[in-house]
Write a protein that binds this DNA or RNA. Structure first.
Length: 354
DNA sequence: TAGGCGTGGAT
DNA sequence: TATCCAAGCCT
């Protein structure tokens, strides 16, 4: 079976089975030459990095409503963008999103580059995202290789090498299959196939347009591929956070350093997080009370158990760390999830002690 | 180059 | 409850 026949069959499948997504031009319109707005393609692709479609949709709507063009986003305040990204995770993406928007708006006349090379020179755009934007927004024959494509290629060709070592081989296989026409639709078609048919567990091989060509299916091992090297177990780290509320209802919060874990995000002052964190003094004088219970949260590479200290602070409080944010201005949705958990647990205590 | 970097849903 | 997993990038 030649590659041309394979890609053509996948495009036929895509014509009737493409997912309808807010950032997507459906195949019937794409075939008429309509292209998606590069800004929206870029925004969706960055949001979708290591993140599910279900989680992205609401954020995409919020961002495109509030900042309809790249110039609007470029002009936004850092703290507003970080707050809008809160809860989506991988906050370096939001920092790079702003950097990228400002380069495009201020140095590139508001237009995204239309080549992989130009795109990949921008902050937060790597090999996958540059190919996705080039293919989807500019219909260039760029090969997208994400987790979906890796899985589909590993099965189609029964690649037994475990990831991530297999990545170069899977990339080469994907490149061979990429057709010269309908590039954007093809890129989205492979990913749709991986997301809806060729799924990690229980692949729906009976519905797959590539079933008769799939080496793993013929061997009965589709669900076992791609093989992966096992990851190390996550260590447990401990920490303390201080949740203070002033008499007028303002909360004592702190902007985290601009890089590293939760970089640039708002949070509660506290200790560092490690196996044995050094004690730190409270961020402001007051009668601090340890809270029963703790916040448990799992990050990419460790489990966190966070002890909380709470206090009513006087109007004249002069904090050594952080800044007060008025109660009617503060929105716990602006916090990363671990900090929002700490807020909700503390809030119970404040409400009970009022 | 391998490890840092979030989150919520599925199993 | 614990683990895996999702449209990766940066250093």
């Amino acid at each position: 079976m030649c590659d041309h026949v394979l890609s053509a069959r996948l495009l036929d499948w895509y014509d009737t089975h493409a997912r309808a997504l807010p950032w997507r031009v459906p195949p019937d319109q794409s075939r008429l030459g309509r292209r998606a707005d590069p800004y929206r393609v870029w925004l969706s692709e960055v949001m979708l990095q290591q993140t599910t479609v279900a989680a992205v949709k609401a954020y995409f709507d919020t961002f495109t409503s509030r900042w309809p063009r790249v110039q609007d986003l470029a002009a936004a305040r850092d703290e507003d963008v970080m707050a809008a990204w809160a809860g989506l995770g991988y906050y370096a993406r939001a920092r790079n999103l702003l950097k990228c928007a400002r380069v495009v708006a201020n140095e590139l006349g508001g237009r995204f580059p239309d080549t992989r090379e130009g795109l990949q020179a921008l902050p937060g755009i790597g090999p996958y995202t540059s190919a996705a934007i080039a293919a989807i927004a500019f219909d260039q024959p760029a090969t997208v290789v994400d987790g979906n494509v890796e899985r589909v290629m590993a099965r189609l060709h029964a690649v037994q090498t475990p990831l991530p070592a297999a990545k170069p081989e899977l990339t080469a296989l994907a490149t061979t299959l990429t057709p010269p026409d309908r590039c954007g639709d093809y890129a989205q078609a492979v990913m749709d196939l991986g997301a809806t048919i060729c799924t990690p567990r229980n692949p729906a091989c009976g519905l797959c347009p590539w079933r008769t060509d799939c080496a793993a299916h013929a061997l009965g091992i589709a669900a076992e591929l791609p093989r992966k090297t096992r990851k190390a177990p996550k260590p447990i780290r401990l920490g303390t956070a201080f949740v203070g509320r002033r008499a007028d209802g303002a909360w004592l919060l702190e902007r985290r350093p601009p890089s590293g874990l939760l970089g640039g995000m708002l949070g509660w002052p506290g200790s560092g997080w490690s196996e044995n964190p050094a004690a730190v003094p409270p961020p402001a004088p007051g009668r601090w009370t340890p809270l029963n219970g703790e916040v448990r949260h799992t990050f990419t590479h460790f489990h966190l158990r966070l002890q909380l200290q709470v206090a009513h602070l006087p109007e004249a409080s002069t904090p050594a760390r952080g800044q007060f944010i008025a109660g009617d201005t503060f929105d716990p949705n602006d916090l990363p999830t671990v900090m929002a958990k700490a807020y909700h647990l503390s809030r119970d205590w404040f409400d009970a002690s009022d």
